[in-house]
Computed example of a mutant assay.
Amino acid sequence: MARFTLLGTATIPGKGTELRLLQRNDEFSIKIAGSTGELMNSRLHGSEDALATLACERISELPSPRVLIGGLGMGFTLAAALKSLGSDAQVTVAELVPEVESWNRGPLGGAAGYPLEDPRARVHIGDVVELIRQSPAAFDAILLDVDNGPEGLTRKENDWLYTSAGIHAAQAALTPDGVLAYWSAGQDPAFTERLKRAGLSVEPVTVRAHRPGKGARHVIWLAW
């Protein structure tokens, strides 16, 4: 079996943790240096696709829908959002690590079909938390896949997004008919209750990492 080749490294701002982009044939992997596990793999993106599809189908009939995605990753959520929306949509991706955008404009981009080349897509390099705080009633959908879920893995500051204050800030950045969608590696009943206490209707959806019936079970919360 072919071995992975290192294509690039990047440091997470404020953390010092190194991300590593690797390639083996047509397969890509993003890992944290020193860790044996993967953050992302280009062959396992079913739940990232579902994050966009489940949320965007709720707003697809709105005129000129505006979507915010927290975390570019390998571009699969962005690609699925663009596929689900019409030509008048605008999708903003907030990405903290500049090199991740460069990777997606380079060889990694082919895995998801180069969604950054779509004129409806734009990238905001910076913290999605700050963009949410600065954008009252700006988005019809906010899709958050910035970490491992309610318990941050790569960056402890990400935990704030899942607190009551973070949920209220995200609500304030939504239009009146907007929807929030959160990706997680696993269930978290406490987070479900936190969303409900914020006055939101909540639907946790279990999806597969690979495709229907295959791969690990991940969770997407839809809240509106």
Score class of each variant (00 low, 15 high):
residue 130 E to N: 14
residue 157 E to Y: 02
residue 144 L to F: 13
residue 78 L to I: 01
residue 40 M to R: 01
residue 222 L to T: 07
residue 72 L to W: 04
residue 145 D to H: 14
residue 80 A to T: 03
residue 180 L to G: 05
residue 29 S to Y: 10
residue 41 N to S: 13
residue 115 P to G: 06
residue 172 A to Y: 04
residue 73 G to Q: 03
residue 151 E to M: 09
residue 109 G to M: 02
residue 108 L to P: 01
residue 123 V to Q: 07
residue 207 V to K: 03
residue 162 Y to W: 15
residue 156 K to S: 13
residue 10 A to C: 08
residue 83 K to C: 08
residue 77 T to L: 00
residue 187 Q to K: 14
residue 213 G to N: 08
residue 107 P to R: 09
residue 184 S to F: 12
residue 66 R to F: 06
residue 72 L to S: 08
residue 212 P to F: 13
residue 26 D to W: 03
residue 224 W to R: 15
residue 54 L to Q: 14
residue 112 A to V: 13
residue 116 L to H: 08
residue 4 F to N: 05
residue 117 E to M: 11
residue 195 L to P: 01
residue 30 I to M: 12
residue 57 E to D: 12
residue 14 G to A: 12
residue 197 R to G: 11
residue 195 L to T: 00
residue 106 G to H: 09
residue 201 S to K: 13
residue 180 L to I: 05
residue 99 E to W: 02
residue 132 I to K: 01
residue 6 L to D: 08
residue 92 T to A: 08
residue 43 R to Q: 10
residue 23 Q to M: 07
residue 89 A to V: 03
residue 80 A to E: 03
residue 76 F to S: 01
residue 154 T to M: 13
residue 43 R to W: 12
residue 186 G to A: 15
residue 26 D to C: 04
residue 133 R to E: 04
residue 117 E to N: 14
residue 170 A to H: 02
residue 157 E to N: 07
residue 70 G to M: 11
residue 187 Q to Y: 11
residue 37 G to M: 07
residue 147 D to Y: 09
residue 142 I to F: 04
residue 173 A to T: 01
residue 72 L to K: 02
residue 87 S to F: 04
residue 143 L to E: 10
residue 180 L to M: 08
residue 137 A to Y: 00
residue 119 P to A: 12
residue 156 K to A: 11
residue 191 F to C: 11
residue 112 A to P: 00
residue 223 A to Y: 02
residue 63 P to A: 11
residue 24 R to V: 03
residue 166 G to N: 11
residue 171 Q to W: 00
residue 136 P to F: 13
residue 200 L to D: 00
residue 13 P to G: 07
residue 46 G to C: 11
residue 62 L to E: 06
residue 29 S to I: 09
residue 9 T to M: 02
residue 199 G to A: 12
residue 205 V to G: 08
residue 17 T to A: 07
residue 201 S to W: 04
residue 18 E to A: 06
residue 125 I to Y: 05
residue 175 T to H: 06
residue 214 K to T: 10
residue 200 L to H: 01
residue 116 L to P: 01
residue 94 A to I: 00
residue 163 T to Q: 10
residue 77 T to V: 03
residue 145 D to E: 14
residue 199 G to K: 15
residue 17 T to R: 15
residue 26 D to L: 12
residue 26 D to P: 01
residue 170 A to P: 02
residue 34 G to R: 01
residue 186 G to T: 13
residue 120 R to C: 06
residue 8 G to D: 11
residue 182 Y to S: 08
residue 70 G to C: 06
residue 165 A to N: 14
residue 159 D to E: 04
residue 85 L to V: 05
residue 90 Q to C: 10
residue 50 A to R: 12
residue 69 I to L: 11
residue 35 S to Q: 05
residue 181 A to G: 12
residue 118 D to R: 00
residue 224 W to T: 14
residue 184 S to R: 02
residue 47 S to C: 10
residue 95 E to P: 00
residue 5 T to A: 05
residue 114 Y to C: 02
residue 116 L to E: 07
residue 156 K to F: 07
residue 89 A to N: 04
residue 184 S to T: 13
residue 133 R to A: 14
residue 38 E to N: 14
residue 1 M to R: 10
residue 30 I to A: 04
residue 168 H to P: 00
residue 106 G to L: 01
residue 220 I to T: 12
